[in-house]
Amino acid sequence: MALRVTFVAAAGSSSVLAERFEDVRPLDQAGWSEVQRAAHELLPLAAADLRYCSPAPRSRATGEGLGYAPLVQLALRECDMGRWRGLTLGEAMAREPQAVDAWLADPRSTAHGGESLLDFIGRVGGWLDTRPAEENCRVVAVAEPSVIRAALLYVLKAPPAAYWNIEVRPLSTVGVAGRAGRWKLRLEGVFAQSARA
């Protein structure tokens, strides 16, 4: 039985340099404009059998804005960043440079007092493995880029260090197909406006 899951990256609400760990800011006007431009291409995903989103405000707003009426999934939340929640990487580095270095170097590190990268990848993978496995069931999940990177590592059984080498652009899509423990990557589409550097 094959399950098809399409991940849609939440629309952005800030520049990459201003991204914050576990960002709870809502979509800004630029983010809403991205959703409106992408809606025509991404609306067909609303026909999925099951529609989910992470609890992050940007993901929920993106899913609603695209007409998905998604069900919030706590397992699709971003990595628990402990005392770094709400900080940019630069801010965390300024406060705790050795802890940030340890966290970046070791996927088992919880230097921030939160969840390790390995545990985060396992949590997202566990969510994927527990989706209904009905034949040709189609699922769409709107999530933050970090969650999509974790899902891709899980599907590909890639080393955790590869997490830092995956760029997920706002409103891009990527699919996976299979069932628990047996997943394949399915390259689908990227919304052209969002893919520009």
Rank of each mutant, 00 (worst) to 15 (best):
L89V: 13
M93A: 14
A61D: 04
A192S: 11
D119R: 06
Q29I: 00
E167Q: 11
D49L: 01
A133Q: 15
V168Y: 12
V176G: 02
A11E: 06
E91W: 05
L17K: 13
A75M: 07
A177N: 01
P107V: 04
S14A: 15
R77H: 04
P160D: 01
G86W: 09
A150V: 11
V8D: 07
V147R: 02
E64F: 09
E167I: 08
Q29F: 08
E188P: 02
A38D: 04
D49H: 15
S54R: 05
A56I: 00
Y154D: 02
P55Q: 04
L118Y: 02
W183V: 00
A180V: 04
V100G: 03
R77T: 00
A92C: 03
P132Q: 07
W183H: 14
G12F: 12
P44N: 01
E34H: 10
R138E: 14
A177Q: 14
R58S: 04
T110E: 08
V190Q: 12
C137Q: 10
T130Q: 15
E34G: 11
A99L: 13
R37P: 09
L42M: 07
A141W: 10
A105Q: 12
P44R: 02
A30R: 12
R60L: 09
E96G: 04
V155E: 01
Q73Y: 01
V147K: 02
G67F: 06
A162G: 00
V72D: 09
G113R: 05
H112F: 05
G90H: 12
E64T: 12
A2M: 13
A150N: 06
G86L: 11
G126T: 09
L43A: 15
S59Y: 06
M1C: 03
R77N: 11
E167K: 13
A69W: 06
F120Q: 02
L89T: 10
E167C: 01
G181P: 08
R77M: 07
L45A: 08
A161W: 00
P159A: 11
A30H: 11
I121V: 15
E115K: 05
R179W: 10
I121Y: 05
W32T: 03
E144D: 06
E115P: 05
K157Y: 04
G86I: 06
G122C: 07
R179C: 10
R20G: 07
R131P: 00
Y52S: 04
M1A: 10
R95L: 15
E41V: 14
L171D: 01
A75G: 04
Y154R: 13
L185H: 07
R196H: 05
A69C: 09
G122N: 09
P70V: 09
V139F: 00
L187T: 05
F120W: 01
C53S: 15
L27I: 08
G65M: 10
V139A: 10
Y68Q: 04
